[in-house]
Design a protein around this nucleic acid. Structure first.
Ligand code: MN
Ligand code: MN
Ligand code: ZN
Ligand code: ZN
Lengths: 124, 124
DNA sequence: TTATTATTGCGATTATGTTGCAATAATACA
DNA sequence: TGTATTATTGCAACATAATCGCAATAATAA
């Protein structure tokens, strides 16, 4: 499907680009000046995911978080890094440390969803 | 709170003990002979988690999975291992490989929620 | 300027999990 | 054994996160 540039999509990606953290739909909506419907934000986010512009993390709080994560595009597999969720300031960030793992024979990994949970440096 | 032994709780833990995989509430309910309400199953599962008998994984499909995971009780931190979710047979299993990670200064990890997603040996 | 169709807002819907409450039943103990 | 205590249960209602259908709107190409 062909893509169109719209104020909504520009606003969403602008917020993510300006953030050092992964953000939930709710957090994104709060940062955006204009009013955008929840469903529309999700549609934009899912589209960006499909297009490989951002990636999605599902955290242990059951929510989806989205991040641009500029560092990880050199990796063979997408999202091959840990994330850290701070239970105090309720943020998620992409860590630079790559994921080391070993698998039983014949297992094949396609993607990662790895979150470390605790207290971040700011909140320590 | 004092615990009581009931047919429901026995059934739930029996299913998990008999399984090599982590299971969702839905999967557990299907394995149990008797009819048990959804809320009751969740209450049993949450109680077992509180008591440290089982542990919970939130996968990238947004669902909670529960497993006994006998291997991990020697670890300092709970749940310090990867999980593997097979997108073909819709199961999650605890892997034996421990999680190696490095953190920025002053960060403190309290728990893990790490899932590798792909195709398992059976489905390869 | 016009036609095409991607995008949007809105409401409804799905999916997963939790909670309040009265009825039930497991346990302790007289 | 019989009784009191209260953990547990089933049911319905609720909560939250995310998706979907559809008609209206607007970005793009011709
Ligand atoms: Mn990331
Ligand atoms: Mn496990
Ligand atoms: Zn923090
Ligand atoms: Zn499989």
């Amino acid at each position: 499907m062909k893509r169109r540039s719209t104020p909504t999509k520009e606003a969403v990606i602008a917020v993510l680009n300006a953030s050092t953290r992964a953000m939930s739909q709710e957090a994104i909506e709060q940062k955006i000046e204009i009013e955008i419907d929840r469903a529309t934000v999700y549609r934009a986010l899912n589209q960006f995911c499909t297009d490989g512009i951002i990636h999605k993390i599902v955290a242990d709080d059951g929510k989806q978080y989205f991040a641009v994560c500029k560092k990880c595009d050199v990796e063979a597999l997408p999202d091959n890094h840990f994330h850290f969720r701070c239970t105090k300031c309720h943020t998620i960030e992409c860590l630079s440390s790559l994921i080391n793992f070993s698998l039983p024979k014949a297992y094949a990994v396609e993607k990662f969803n790895c979150v470390l949970v605790g207290t971040c440096g700011n909140c320590a």
